[in-house]
Amino acid sequence: MTTSARLLLAALVATALVASGGAARQVAGVRKDAKGASAGKGGDFGRADEAADRVSRPFKSLDGGWGDSIPWVQTYEEGLKMAAEQGKPLMVIHWSEACPYCIALREAFKNHGEVQKMAAEDFVSVNLQTETLDQNLAPDGRYVPRIMFVDPSMTVRADIGSGYRNSLYAYHSDEVFRLVDAMKKAKVPLKTEL
């Protein structure tokens, strides 16, 4: 395959990825160099079957494995905006793929019917593998897993925790009832004075 044919194929792959919503992460996968230099030797983007493999890989969705029936938002800022607009609390899940406690909690969360129903119907939800700049989301430190709630009035609900003394906002996979209780408390809006 000629270099120009490979460039055309790469452009088509990138266009297909952009159209399907996987643009930023997957298009970056076509190129290996952060400066935008093409992969391979002499501008060679690789074989056509490699590009086809990139297109056929499943895209990671916003649910991150926490439940695909929940309408997840992409960023904390987007979540704050939607929570205020919809009058629903925001649930912020901080986690990491490298954390075995996070993975266990994710499985328990995904398989718990009441948690899934409340998250889908009563909350704006975001799961983050990076920290936000909002220091209020880490009142007792930055650790994972950590679940915080934000009232539609934009107040972080530091009063709602798991009940553990050493990690107030950590939830464990074998005690999902604590998360259910916290979610029920978070559904009750704060009273705001005028």
Rank of each mutant, 00 (worst) to 15 (best):
S38G: 14
R146E: 06
L90P: 05
S69H: 14
S162K: 00
R165I: 07
S20V: 08
V18K: 08
A11M: 12
D53A: 15
A108M: 08
V150P: 01
R178W: 00
F109I: 01
Q135N: 11
A10D: 01
E50N: 12
E50F: 10
L80G: 10
S69R: 13
K110Y: 03
L168P: 05
P100R: 08
V55W: 09
R165S: 15
D33T: 09
L133E: 15
D181S: 09
V73M: 04
V115R: 00
R6S: 09
D151A: 03
I70L: 07
M148P: 03
C99K: 08
K60H: 05
D159T: 10
A24M: 08
G43C: 02
E107M: 02
M154D: 11
D181C: 03
K191I: 10
M183Y: 01
T132N: 03
E114H: 04
A51Y: 11
A186M: 01
G22P: 02
T192D: 11
F149T: 02
T15E: 13
V188K: 15
V30H: 05
E121A: 14
G79S: 12
S96H: 00
L62H: 00
G29S: 14
M148E: 05
G29P: 01
A182H: 02
L9N: 10
V55T: 08
N111G: 11
K185M: 12
A34G: 03
D44C: 08
A98Y: 06
A158M: 07
F149N: 09
E121N: 15
S96T: 04
D63W: 09
V18S: 09
P139L: 13
T130H: 09
A19G: 09
M154L: 12
A5S: 13
R54Y: 02
R57M: 15
D181N: 14
A158Q: 14
S125C: 15
S4L: 12
R54P: 00
K117W: 12
D68G: 13
G42L: 06
C102L: 00
L62R: 11
S4C: 02
A158H: 09
W95Y: 09
G67V: 06
V13F: 14
F59Y: 04
A52C: 01
A98S: 13
